[in-house]
C-alpha cells in the first residue's frame, strides 16, 4: 500500500524523485480518508510552489483538504486528466492519480521525508 520507492510527508503526500524533478501525489491512506474524490484544484504549469504552502486542494463530497509540496520549485507538469476524472486519485493514487511535477530548487529539502516504513508506522497511529 505504500511503495518503497517513494518518499512521504506527514501531510500524506508522496514524492517520487527523479533527478531534480519530483512527482507529487497523495497516499493511499489520504485517498481512503477522503473518500470519493470529486474535484482536484491544481496549479498551472510555470507556477512556483513553496515548501509548507498549499499548492492546491482536493475535495470529496463533504470535505476539502489542502495539498502541500515538501519542497520549493517550479511546476513543470500538471495532471490535467484529474479535472475530468478526479476518481483516478482513489483508483490509482501512485500511478495515474499523480498531481504535479516540480522542478526542485533545492533537492536537499527532501532529505527529511519519511520512508515507506516510517510513513506506514505514522498512519497506523492515525488510523
Amino acid at each position: 500500500m505504500y511503495p518503497s520507492d517513494l518518499k512521504y510527508d506527514k501531510e500524506h503526500e508522496w514524492v517520487r524523485v527523479e533527478g531534480d524533478v519530483a512527482v507529487i501525489g497523495i497516499s493511499h491512506f489520504a485517498q481512503h480518508q477522503l473518500g470519493e474524490v470529486v474535484y482536484v484544484d491544481l496549479p498551472s504549469e510555470g507556477d512556483t510552489v513553496s515548501a509548507g504552502e498549499a499548492f492546491g486542494e482536493i475535495e470529496s463530497v463533504k470535505s476539502v483538504s489542502e495539498l502541500y509540496t515538501p519542497a520549493d520549485g517550479e511546476v513543470i507538469k500538471v495532471n490535467s486528466a484529474l479535472t475530468d476524472a478526479p476518481e483516478t486519485v482513489n483508483e490509482d493514487p501512485y500511478g495515474e492519480g499523480w498531481m504535479i511535477e516540480v522542478k526542485l530548487a533545492d533537492p536537499s529539502q527532501l532529505d527529511g521525508l519519511l520512508s515507506a516504513e516510517e510513513y506506514e508506522a505514522l498512519v497506523s497511529e492515525e488510523a
Binding site: Y39, E59, S60, V61, K62, S63, V64
Partner: peptide, 9 residues
C-alpha cells in the same frame, strides 16, 4: 458542490 460553503470550508 457543498465544499464551497461555510459548514465545510
Amino acid at each position: 458542490l457543498s465544499t464551497r460553503e461555510q459548514h465545510i470550508r
